[in-house]
Simulated scan of single mutants.
Amino acid sequence: MNPSSPNPEAASSPVVRLHDVHKSFGSLKVLQGVGFDVDRGQVTAIIGRSGSGKSTALRCIDRLERIDSGEIVVCGHRVDAPGIDLKALRLDVGIVFQSYNLFPHLTIEQNITLAPRSAKGLSRSEARSIALDVLAKVGLSDKASYYPEQLSGGQQQRVAIARSLAMQPKVMLFDEVTSALDPELTGEVLRVIEDLAAGGMTMVMVTHEMAFARKVADQIVFMHKGKVWERGGPEILSEPQTAELRQFVASDL
């Protein structure tokens, strides 16, 4: 069997598994033995100070960064395998960044239908039907014919989420998706993510929104100096076991 091919036995395994993952940029060690599992339907929030390795860990899950050693398995794909089928991996994994990355010259509908048509070979009508469905999920049914510049930052971020959903991924990754938004717009984006969680979507999100993490996450992963320092349910934010997490939580109050 190709080591990067989905394993039919993976249905009962964690959807995402990182084991002893190391990653350096030159002499800078960013990830030092990171490991955690994400089960099907589980929402995992990765928290920690800037420079703790949160976003790098997330990018490694989608093979946007190559790891130096360790193992990452996502939806049965061995992400660290030399022969990984990146197209197959990214059909299963959607990722949304802080920047919206929408094409300014395309309408919202065109932004959303582009990938389903090019990557999945869907017809224009099939892709349009999916686009309208995901726009309804993010509360933007009336914006299909608009251009990105006609939308607020919060609306553009919701379109970015809809664009990922249009590919019908098994896992959604969110990298600080509200950090560039003001509080009102942040709320509308977080409500969309909360609805996805309620619908059973498996998600891994890097976030600085501690109140949201407490409310929505099933698992909290606290990273510090490139390592998983503490991991558990939301209760670890109320009862930290280490001085580092206590200080981090206190700084957010």
Rank of each mutant, 00 (worst) to 15 (best):
7 N>W: 04
183 P>I: 09
158 R>G: 02
214 R>Q: 09
4 S>V: 06
174 F>N: 00
184 E>H: 11
133 D>Y: 14
96 V>G: 09
208 H>L: 00
181 L>I: 10
94 G>K: 12
116 P>Q: 15
64 L>R: 12
231 R>Y: 12
70 G>W: 11
9 E>F: 10
209 E>D: 02
166 A>W: 07
214 R>V: 04
217 A>M: 05
75 C>F: 00
95 I>S: 10
105 H>I: 12
248 F>C: 05
97 F>I: 01
207 T>M: 13
19 H>P: 02
28 L>G: 07
50 S>W: 14
37 D>N: 01
113 T>E: 08
102 L>K: 09
172 M>H: 05
84 I>V: 15
122 L>H: 07
52 S>P: 12
230 E>T: 01
105 H>R: 14
174 F>G: 05
93 V>E: 01
170 K>H: 04
132 L>R: 15
22 H>P: 06
141 S>A: 14
222 F>R: 00
72 I>Q: 01
178 T>S: 03
88 A>G: 06
250 A>Y: 03
143 K>W: 04
19 H>T: 12
243 A>G: 08
30 V>M: 05
93 V>C: 03
32 Q>I: 13
177 V>D: 08
162 A>M: 02
224 H>V: 08
145 S>D: 15
192 V>T: 10
252 D>C: 06
39 D>Y: 09
200 G>I: 03
71 E>W: 04
155 Q>E: 07
52 S>I: 06
176 E>Y: 06
177 V>W: 09
165 L>A: 11
73 V>A: 01
40 R>N: 03
202 T>H: 05
222 F>T: 02
10 A>G: 00
208 H>V: 03
167 M>K: 15
66 R>E: 14
134 V>P: 11
71 E>P: 05
222 F>W: 01
17 R>W: 03
202 T>S: 04
38 V>R: 00
162 A>Y: 05
233 G>W: 07
196 L>P: 14
125 S>C: 11
19 H>L: 09
222 F>G: 03
125 S>T: 11
14 P>H: 00
206 V>Y: 02
69 S>I: 12
104 P>Y: 10
59 R>K: 09
21 V>I: 10
69 S>K: 14
84 I>L: 15
180 A>Y: 12
29 K>T: 08
224 H>T: 11
241 Q>K: 14
209 E>G: 01
110 Q>S: 13
42 Q>Y: 05
104 P>H: 12
122 L>D: 06
186 T>K: 08
201 M>D: 01
31 L>C: 06
40 R>P: 08
140 L>G: 01
130 I>R: 15
154 G>W: 00
129 S>I: 10
178 T>V: 09
4 S>A: 13
206 V>S: 03
157 Q>K: 05
19 H>D: 11
253 L>T: 10
147 Y>W: 15
229 W>N: 15
241 Q>C: 11
67 I>M: 13
9 E>N: 13
196 L>N: 12
67 I>Q: 04
94 G>P: 09
74 V>Q: 03
168 Q>C: 11
174 F>A: 00
177 V>Y: 05
14 P>V: 00
124 R>P: 04
153 G>M: 01
244 E>Y: 13
251 S>D: 10
27 S>Y: 09
235 E>S: 08
10 A>K: 00
141 S>P: 10
183 P>H: 09
